[in-house]
Design a protein around this nucleic acid. Structure first.
Length: 581
RNA sequence: GUCCUCGUAGUUCAACGGAUAGAACAAGAGCCUCCUAAGCUCUAGAUGUAGGUUCGAUUCCUGCCGAGGACACCA
């Protein structure tokens, strides 16, 4: 990547130039204003104090030195200095056109790297609770997780996607109790989650008048954890049926997992975890329960075993961390879980550290804000005021269907259907992935279903436009059988919009890497949006397909490399492109 | 009460401690006899508040104000 090449050169030059002092960290950054160049360097200002010289003077020294460096002309077209001490670089035309060739050659792989080769990252995402419908809140974890999965894979990591489903715990006691009393097997098989939700809601309603219910449910939970045959059988049934429903959603959203290791998978490890903690004197008894004291971290204790002997999700999470370290050989574990659980993860990570689990593993809570109801308050499953994921998806596809009907009524029915699905789902995903703010999102139908401006359909539309241009070009010059992009003379690209596009294209690999570093898919989204935006301006101001063959060819080929980049970027977000829309 | 996250145009969001704080939507003015108008061009509009650190703060630290969330036997 070019920013790294620049940094390397600079490290050397600055090191040679100022041998007497310790060089502080400095960065090669993207200037805010494009007029300043492609890359900017702040080193002169950082050094100014130490060297007791003016930043501009230092910048000048460094600039001269870079210009004198051999090979620098291949890389830079222009190097300038600007107040208060920036050194700005403009990348050479040679590099820009070489990059176009690289994109065309690498196609689907353009932008990928081997950065993470040999490293394993486990990503924990989605993790719905069995028997509860997935609502808009689950969407964030699911698609952010999937996108990080794609991004890390693209960077050469071995990625293991794990759906840590909530298939163990007290909600099963309630559900089992409800099922035994009011359940109907057939109904459940027919629409699993819906029926289970009804049971769950009924349980809560009745427990308001009947105080014993909670206690009875606790007993069912305990019986399940003690491996009572009837309860185990029931539990397996409920889990299996729930997964049927979830898998439909995953399929629609094109979300995949390598493992679906729910909480129950770690059951055998739990007593070992607690005993080990007690032996190491890290865990201790407190008010009849067993806790890990976290005073050292200024945190309240981590409760890992209840007074009645039952384990909790805290215990399971410790076991899971251990499993991921020992069995999955993770170098990095990412928990894509809502911000609400921040405290839990703080305590989990602290406890793991005390227990010597994941000592050499980078563990990170990838938190995100909640999706709030239109009232601005938290959605409540119990009150049933959430927006179900299913409904959201259905409405988005319907809405997109109407848009296609309006804009392109002549297409075949099946193509319209496909477009509606791709656009609708793309819009939902992009709406979420294009923002990484930890702020809570207030759910808004209009925004979710916006197909204009900074949205997935905008990007898909740009892709479709380019595709259409390529068709037109091939048609006009009868290029059916040959590769229309070979041996293109890029020197013909002289328009300022063309140069801007080329300058932007070199930064794609960096955008992906930044995105992984920040665990923020929105950086990829932002990048491709800017690219598409530049392209649409270009499209509007320059005639791309014309009767001058060589220029047309150069322009179409440039367009092609833009479309490859948009496609690859969208694919990292888990969004598909369309040839026509 | 303690802790976590967040306060940026009317709204939804951007901005590794850098240069003139960017977009989109909404508002207003234009652009289809011309490659897909799901598009393009132009106009107007913002860093909650008071300090501190720094050559430089939307960004880091502290206080205050405001929003949301989590706090021991649920997950």
């Amino acid at each position: 990547m070019i920013n790294k090449e620049i940094k390397e050169i600079l490290d050397k030059i600055v090191g040679d130039l100022y041998q007497d002092i310790k060089i502080p960290d400095f960065v090669v950054e993207w200037p805010k204003q494009k007029d300043f160049g492609d890359y900017a360097l702040n080193v002169a200002m950082v050094l100014a104090k130490e060297l007791k010289k003016s930043p501009m003077e230092i910048a000048r020294e460094i600039m001269e030195k870079i210009k004198a460096e051999k090979g620098s002309e291949d890389l830079f077209k222009n190097i300038t200095i600007a107040n208060p001490g920036f050194i700005n670089f403009e990348i050479s035309d040679k590099y820009l056109t070489e990059n176009l060739n690289r994109i065309l050659k690498r196609k689907c792989k353009s932008g990928s790297s081997e950065m993470g080769k040999g490293k394993t990252v486990v990503i924990d995402y989605s993790a719905p609770n069995i028997a509860k419908p997935m609502h808009v809140g689950h969407l964030r974890s699911t698609i952010i997780g999937q996108s990080l999965y794609n991004i890390y894979s693209f960077l050469g990591y071995k990625v293991i996607g794990d759906n840590h489903i909530g298939d163990w715990g007290t909600q099963f006691g309630k559900l089992i109790y409800a099922y035994k009393n009011w359940g109907d097997k057939k109904k459940i098989s027919k629409s699993p989650i819906e029926e289970m939700t009804k049971l769950y809601v009924r349980f809560h309603k009745e427990s308001e008048v009947n105080e014993n219910l909670e206690e009875l449910a606790r007993k069912e939970t305990k019986r399940l954890q003690d491996k009572n045959a009837e309860n185990i059988k029931l539990w397996k049934f409920l889990v299996k049926e729930s997964l049927k429903d979830y898998n439909k959603i995953y399929k629609t959203l094109n979300v995949k997992f390598d493992l679906v290791l729910g909480e129950s998978s770690y059951d055998d490890m739990l007593s070992g975890i607690v005993n080990n903690g007690l032996e190491k004197k890290i865990a201790s008894k407190s008010e009849g329960a067993i806790v890990i004291n976290l005073d050292k971290y200024n945190l309240s204790p981590f409760l890992i075993q209840k007074t009645d002997g039952a384990f909790l999700y805290t215990t399971t999470d410790i076991a899971t961390a251990k499993y991921r370290e020992e069995k999955l050989k993770a170098d990095k574990v990412l928990y894509v879980v809502a911000n609400e659980q921040a405290l839990h993860f703080q305590k989990l990570f602290a406890s793991s550290e005390l227990l010597g689990i994941c000592e050499n593993v980078e563990i990170d809570h990838i938190k995100f804000g909640m999706v709030l109801g239109e009232s601005g308050k938290k959605f409540s499953t119990r009150k049933g005021d959430t927006v179900r994921l299913n409904d959201l998806i259905r409405r988005a596809i319907e809405f997109a269907g109407k848009a296609v009907e309006e804009k392109n009524p002549k297409l075949s029915r099946s193509e319209k259907k496909k477009i509606a699905k791709t656009v609708g789902i793309g819009a939902i995903k992009y709406n979420d992935l294009s923002q990484n703010r930890l702020t809570d999102i207030t759910f808004d139908w209009d925004k979710m279903l916006s197909f204009e401006g900074n949205s997935a359909p905008y990007l898909q539309y740009t892709y479709a436009r380019i595709n259409s241009l390529i068709g037109k070009f091939k048609n006009l010059y009868k290029l059916d059988r040959i590769n229309p992009f070979e041996k293109t003379n890029f020197d013909l690209l002289k328009e300022k919009e063309e140069i801007s596009l080329m300058r932007h294209l070199i930064k794609f690999p960096e955008a992906i890497e930044n995105s992984a570093r920040e665990n923020g898919p929105h950086l990829v989204a932002l990048y491709i949006y800017e690219l598409a935006s530049l392209y649409n301006s270009y499209y509007n101001s320059v005639q791309i397909v014309s009767d001058e063959k060589q220029i047309t060819k150069a322009r179409v080929t440039l367009s092609k490399s833009v479309s490859i980049t948009i496609r690859n970027g969208l694919s990292l977000l888990g969004i598909d492109v369309l040839d026509r829309m």
